[in-house]
Structure formats: structure tokens, C-alpha cells
């Protein structure tokens, strides 16, 4: 019994301490943001690494998700004779929820794990240590550009995901199922609001971009500098980032759309 209590206490303390360290870490990294402005090339490289290289998987997934949504939505709506609303169903689901969330989950798997592994290996091969000895703060030089790159890339990826998804839905609805094209677009325009839906979706994906990249760089920086430690940290990144995205999505949705 006391053994159980002790383990519980130790775990709680350990988790709390880690969360505290992650926040201090974030503060130190954010302090490096102003120094990035004159050296935007560093950020550019990271937008390339996490954004451009994730583009294909995001676009392809978005296309299929949109197509499935249209197909599934059609089967439900056809019973009520409301297939004209298919555009609304597809676009609202994508813009509000699936775009930001699925794009963030894919981002965590594609770019987040790569970030953790990269930073973890830099630590294991003493590159971070060497930077410190060259009087360069690795938090500012290595971590900050990656964090900023993630925050910039994520909303763009989510927007691309949603847009491609709507095009995919359009293809299925209008092309295959014979929904009227005019109704598809006009119903959508009548129901989707620029601020309420689209701006909130963008805000969501920025938050997800910050959180996923933050978890990824922290896990890398905090990894045990061995090959086993780095592989564990990479796994943790994907698991923790995915859970964080889903949990935060609930909170954000409740805050943004809850009062309707």
C-alpha cells in the first residue's frame, strides 16, 4: 500500500517537475525570437523542413478526408432530402475541426518526430554542447527557429488541408453523386462564416502548431543522449503531441463555438 502511494507520489512529482521544466524551456526559447528577425534564413530552412516536406502527405490526406466526408454525409442527408447541404457539412467539418486537428496529427507524426530525433541526436553527438562552448545558446540558435517555423507552417498546412478537402468533397458530391453545383457552393457560403469559422480554425491551428512543435523540441532537448533515449523521446513526441492536440481541440471548440 505504501509502495503504491510512494510510486503515485513519485510519478506526480516527476510529471510536475517535467511540465515545469518544459515551461521554463519555452520561456527561454521565446526569448530568442527577437534575435531571429534579422536572420530569417534560419526560420526559412525550418519552414522548409517541417512545412514544405509535409505538404504531400497533408494534401493527399486532405483530399481523401474530404471525399470520404462527402460520401458519408451524402448517405445521411439523402434520407432527409437535404443533399444540397452537403457543401455545408463538408466545409464546416473541415474548416472547424478536421482541418486543424488532422493536419496537426499528421504534422506531429511527420515533422514533430523528425524534430525530436534531430535535436536528440544533436545532443547525443555533443553538437549542442559544442555550441554552448562556442558561446552560442542552442536554445536560440537551434530550437527557436524550429519553434517559429512550426508556428508559421502549421496554419498554412491546415488551410491547404481544408481547401484540398473541400475540393475533394466537391469532386465526389458534384462529380460522382450529382449534387447541384450551385447549391453546393451557395449553401456553403450561406452557412460558413469568415470570422466565426475560418478565423477560429486558423487560430486553432496556430495553437496546435505551437504545442506540437514545443513538445517535439522539448522532447528532443530533454532526451537521454543515447540511441535508445532518442527513440523513446521520438515516440513520446508523437503520443504526447497527438493527445495534446485532441485534448486542446475539445477545450478550444468549447471556447469558440460553445455559446451557440
Amino acid at each position: 500500500m505504501t509502495g503504491f502511494l510512494q510510486r503515485l507520489g513519485a510519478t506526480t512529482l516527476g510529471v510536475t517537475e517535467r511540465i515545469g521544466r518544459a515551461h521554463l524551456f519555452l520561456l527561454h526559447v521565446l526569448a530568442g525570437f527577437p534575435g531571429l528577425l534579422p536572420r530569417f534564413g534560419l526560420v526559412m530552412k525550418q519552414i522548409y523542413a517541417s512545412g514544405v516536406l509535409s505538404l504531400l502527405i497533408i494534401a493527399v490526406s486532405g483530399l481523401f478526408v474530404g471525399m470520404v466526408l462527402a460520401l458519408q454525409g451524402y448517405n445521411t442527408l439523402v434520407d432527409f432530402g437535404a443533399t444540397e447541404s452537403l457543401g455545408v457539412v463538408v466545409s464546416l467539418s473541415l474548416v472547424r475541426e478536421l482541418g486543424p486537428v488532422v493536419a496537426a496529427l499528421l504534422f506531429a507524426g511527420r515533422a514533430g518526430s523528425a524534430l525530436t530525433a534531430e535535436i536528440g541526436l544533436m545532443k547525443a553527438t555533443e553538437q549542442l554542447s559544442a555550441m554552448e562552448m562556442m558561446a552560442v545558446n542552442p536554445l536560440h540558435r537551434v530550437v527557436a527557429p524550429r519553434l517559429l517555423g512550426g508556428i508559421i507552417a502549421m496554419p498554412l498546412l491546415a488551410a491547404i488541408f481544408s481547401a484540398v478537402g473541400i475540393l475533394g468533397g466537391h469532386f465526389v458530391a458534384v462529380g460522382l453523386l450529382g449534387v447541384d453545383e450551385g447549391a453546393f457552393w451557395s449553401q456553403m457560403q450561406a452557412k460558413v462564416d469568415l470570422y466565426e469559422d475560418i478565423a477560429n480554425g486558423v487560430i486553432k491551428s496556430m495553437v496546435f502548431g505551437l504545442v506540437v512543435t514545443w513538445i517535439a523540441v522539448f522532447e528532443g532537448y530533454d532526451a537521454v543522449p543515447t540511441s535508445e533515449g532518442v527513440s523513446r523521446a521520438t515516440t513520446r513526441t508523437v503520443v504526447h503531441a497527438s493527445l495534446a492536440v485532441l485534448g486542446l481541440d475539445f477545450v478550444l471548440t468549447a471556447l469558440m463555438f460553445g455559446d451557440e
Partner: peptide, 13 residues
């Protein structure tokens, strides 16, 4: 004002 040479170089890969 210090330089340090690490065991395996620690070059930025």
C-alpha cells in the same frame, strides 16, 4: 575566448 575540441569533433552535421 576559449575553444574546445570535442572527443569526436561534434561538427554541426
Amino acid at each position: 575566448r576559449m575553444g574546445m575540441l570535442f572527443q569526436n569533433g561534434a561538427l554541426l552535421t
